[in-house]
Nucleic acid binder design. Structure first.
Lengths: 338, 338
DNA sequence: CCAGAGCGAGACAACGTTGTCATCGACAGA
DNA sequence: TCTGTCGATGACAACGTTGTCTCGCTCTGG
């Protein structure tokens, strides 16, 4: 009845004993520090591979004070392609810094976000990238003051001064609407998420600014806010089309809404124009024409990650805001045949 | 010129000093251990929040021996929706166990996979879920013997005995082909990834078994292997259609190939039938009919994660293989109008 | 032949936390 | 009143690693 149900991993001392040297010498060898005779180093390496020793990263970074070679990413939902693209980009850059990535989902829930944030602090990550859900991030301040580095992604911080990387939401939406107006559309249906969300607010502002500039009154009957999934978007489009003086064009505030709008417009054989914020992978195979307001999602993630590693590297300059530009792209499967 | 460029976080001792108690008492309070007077506990909690103390998870799990409340996930590419769905599922279940998830990409590179595996071992994750890229995983054995728990996902392990969760690839492909045969198809073009990959191998085996059973000879001219992206798939389909006695139906071995096939078939207005392995989010909006061999991706991730946590919880039973069933589903935007 | 430099190696402590054990006071029972 | 018990609290060591310092040896130059 031996008491090692789960065998203990060899430690640096075990290796030292096996090689007939002191623990410190083993440490020197496995960290490539100078000052060890080649002969001794070989003995140590032999013991290391014989015992299957792997340095305990946690103990190491505890002793060496702080750096854990880990960063955190707080996003809404990893299953969403937008976020998974970002997560992949962040992870890849992190790897070039020999750093691991811990990804957590906030589910767009401010309270959960805060809990996740604090847990990552407890884990002493070297920094975090956060797509903020809540509207007040002053709770991060004590941690930031104690050295936690944060970069806000896709939405700016509030209640705290920090780096951020965002899309040029208003200008993108504005340019798209201007394009619709140029084609003669005067009644444009707007389907958008809750204005509580920064991006929705900004995009709506872009729409209103373009309309105002063209002297077109803002018609509440043509705006649906608080739409969060394709089905709701489809329904919103349907009710607008069924109303009096229906729109000849639609603007959808994100790709989920765009999907819903495509479904409804296709189902009705409607030839209304469609303008959607966000490009998406299969936009080129959609069964009807549409225009998307596209931007480089990877660049968004890349910019944030590079900024974070600059901070981790010791940069203490004033917080910066990076804005990623957008551009309009024609999509739809009909383009395949031309 | 104070020497604290980056302010030190308060430790349990700082809190103890501030509250006028011993470190151990602080430890008791923050871990909800019994045996502390309420009055003292309040003092401690006050000091904790005043100083902004957060327990150092690393130091804690170092002392308590082992458990880091972290698991690892090694996948091919986090940006791929298949893998990001799995990552999201794993992370969500992990959260219910108060465990964090570190996700790393192997980029289908066995050497990189091994390096990532060893790094996660060094970090002392409590367990790992791995979608293996290489064909030999005996290198994991020493770690497993020293207590690392692993579950193989989507592809079985080789060179080591371990839990695995896979899709019923052969049966799925077989059922799909049988369906095509039932509709009278006799010449079926096959587009598939390299047989080096387990899933491709199995799916191809399913195809061959169905053909053999129907007495249809296996025609090399109708098979393209080593196809890894939509463009290659489109090209494969094109060359088969341009050959003599072209296929009347196609089987594509994964959703990327399916996308490519759709593009090419649509471009040509071909009415060849299409059967693809893997469902995908926008399959319902594809501009032509297709049948997909679908399965519950979340269930795949869930089964693997539950198994892993059983192991972490102490289960030492014989390794199990879980097989996720498949089923056929009609897709394509034409269904929206019926 | 000896002092000083230089280098390889080990002893020791410390990182922040917690398991174990000792201590101390209060209180119940004889 | 004394002893035994129990509950609250603290002292100490240890988890695995590594920074710092010391020790002892060899080599060089006078």
């Amino acid at each position: 009845m031996d008491k090692q149900d789960r065998p203990r991993r060899p430690t640096i001392s075990d290796v030292a004993a096996a090689a007939g040297v002191s623990p410190k010498t083993v440490s020197r060898v496995i960290n490539n520090e100078p000052g060890v005779r080649a002969e001794l180093a070989d003995q140590v390496l032999a013991a290391v591979s014989k015992l299957g020793f792997r340095r305990n990263t946690m103990a190491s970074s505890l002793r060496s004070g702080g750096q854990t070679a880990t960063i955190g990413l707080i996003i809404e939902d990893l299953a969403n392609p937008f976020y998974s693209t970002i997560a992949a980009t962040v992870a890849n850059i992190a790897r070039t810094h020999d750093t691991h990535l811990i990804t957590v989902s906030s589910e767009e829930n401010p309270e959960l976000e805060q809990r996740q944030f604090l847990q990552l602090c407890q884990r002493r990550v070297d920094g975090m990238i956060i797509v903020p859900a809540g509207s007040d991030h002053s709770y991060t301040r004590p941690e930031v003051e104690m050295g936690m580095r944060m970069v806000f992604l896709d939405r700016p911080p509030s209640g705290i001064l920090a780096d951020s990387v965002v899309i040029d939401n208003a200008a993108g939406a504005r340019a798209g609407i201007v394009d619709l107006l140029k084609d003669g559309h005067r009644r444009i249906g707007v389907v958008i998420d809750s204005p509580v969300i920064y991006t929705a607010r900004e995009r709506l502002a872009g729409v209103r600014s373009a309309l105002a500039e063209a002297g077109i009154p803002y018609d509440d009957a043509l705006v649906r806010v608080g739409v969060t999934n394709p089905d709701e978007a489809a329904h919103a489009v349907a009710t607008m089309l069924d109303g009096v003086d229906p729109p000849t064009a639609f603007f959808t505030g994100n790709n989920r809404s765009t999907i819903g709008a495509i479904q409804e417009l296709y189902r009705r054989d409607s030839d209304a124009a469609l303008l959607g914020f966000d490009d998406f992978e299969l936009a080129t195979l959609m069964p009807r024409p549409l225009t998307v307001i596209a931007y480089d999602v990877q660049e968004l993630g890349r910019a944030a990650t590079l900024r974070l590693f600059e901070r981790i590297g010791g940069d203490t300059s004033w917080p910066s805001e990076t804005v990623i530009p957008t551009h309009l792209v024609q999509r739809g499967v009909q383009l395949l045949k031309s």
